[in-house]
Nucleic acid binder design. Structure first.
Lengths: 252, 252
DNA sequence: CGATAGTTTGACACAGCTCAATAGGCGTGG
DNA sequence: CCACGCCTATTGAGCTGTGTCAAACTATCG
């Protein structure tokens, strides 16, 4: 099944081919100047957008299956995507969270080695594997962006290895809340002292990202709330009155 | 201090400029067709080798300091380099091991976010930051190799996150021994049932890579030896009579 | 308003940590 | 070649943080 490679909902079709403006689909990405497409000039953007399409993926749905053939790549436009790995006996670990405008997919490999799943309702911009790989060959800037994004993800993965290997349960939970607070809203003022957001993850997801059980996660969240570091409404809506106090809890 | 950017020991100087053969320094890398330099043609290789130099770094010495300005990059020619991160209170985590012919250094960043240290005596081929970044701009192939290497390291980091987050101490130790067995000797037959090698890491290093204490590591190694999965002589020399039996112990 | 999925809380067990003592490897110097 | 000292690794005993199992609670949605 060609999940996201088709042209349904392709906004670019509404553009005149002679129009060199940025295609309508790309406006959202452009606005925040992130994402790999920023490397493309309007003409290249138009070419790529011809084979790309926007999709909504609802919470829980799979974007890329582990050990499945990869036939498309995506950019996250909104929502959160979790990248998971599973051992043969079912133990699971989340190995990354992708926020807008992150890229999802493993270039230059025929099979995925992990599972990408929508943690919330997500909207993505997808394009066929072949189209992207063709553009990479034609645009050095695109490959450069991809390298930058990969280096960023590698830095993040290594930071998280410290969290997994050396932090206590309490520090792990604080670290995750801080990570989410800093990434979930790309428009938020990074200097603001207080943050408010809806948790994109269930307790089970959090446990899988931190290498803990849901019970331990729940106890640590309860403690953070009891200590006034966070406020929770409806189990999902979190308020952090003072980011600095949360940072202290992460164990540096 | 310009640690590795000078030309001391630059074998390329002995080459005639009109000689288009592969520079002498590069022969070792070429032999195994790995490493980023494989993307360069002989002429480019010659150009890069003009500013590169071989160095021996003895066990325990630092190649790149955390939060230090990065002025050079290196390729590992032999030995093992450990990449570490340290929390403010001293807790440490090894976030990667680089074997020959891996690349060491973080392109496009002025400061390193981790510490690279020789785990064994190491020999490297180093070149100034500027020289590599210039070549990247001139050779799309080089950037492609760098992307491939970075993607490989990202895959490895994510695999290790599963080990850190979800495996037992026994599985962690088995996973590390398998990792080393598979990487330490680039010339070894990957199909061979038995492997023999000298551990490049102390018990403390192993603990820092696995998120354990040295005592727990020691106990698990003792158990593997008692069960006949490995044989140890002189605390460092390891024989794995049957790789498949070790794999079973890694928890998949 | 009942069903369902997610979350919290409690009591207990155990894997891995801490602290402490012992043993082994290896270089140095007598 | 042995004796000594240093550093690393092993082993033991007890403790604790996190996991396990079970039950109660809460939000959400038909």
């Amino acid at each position: 099944m060609n999940k996201y490679g088709n042209n349904s909902g392709n906004a670019a079709e509404r553009l005149d081919i002679h129009n060199s403006e940025v295609p309508e689909v790309c406006a959202a990405c452009e606005a925040r100047h992130g994402g790999i497409c920023g490397a493309l000039d309007p003409q290249q953007l138009l070419a790529l957008s011809k084979s790309s399409s926007r999709h909504r993926v609802s919470s829980g749905a799979e974007l890329v299956g582990d050990a499945e053939a990869v036939d498309h790549y995506s950019n996250v436009l909104s929502g959160v995507v979790k990248l998971t790995k599973t051992l043969s006996d079912g133990r699971q670990q989340i190995v990354g969270l992708q926020f807008a405008p992150d890229f999802v997919g493993r270039p230059f490999k025929d099979e995925s080695t992990l599972n990408a799943e929508a943690a919330t309702d997500v909207s993505v911009c997808s394009f066929p594997k072949a189209a992207l790989e063709r553009m990479i060959k034609e645009s050095a800037g695109l490959e450069h962006r991809l390298l930058q994004q990969t280096l960023k993800e590698l830095d993040e993965a290594r930071d998280w290895m410290v969290t997994l290997g050396r932090k206590s349960a309490a520090e792990k939970v604080a670290s995750l809340l801080l990570l989410i607070a800093r990434n979930i809203n790309p428009y938020a003022d990074p200097e603001s002292e207080t943050v408010e957001f809806d948790l994109p993850l269930t307790r089970a997801d959090i446990a899988d990202y931190l290498g803990l059980t849901i019970e331990t996660v729940s106890r640590q969240i309860t403690k953070l709330r009891a200590d006034g570091v966070i406020d929770i409404r409806n189990n999902r809506h979190i308020t952090v009155p003072d980011i600095a106090r949360l940072e202290v809890r992460t164990g540096a």
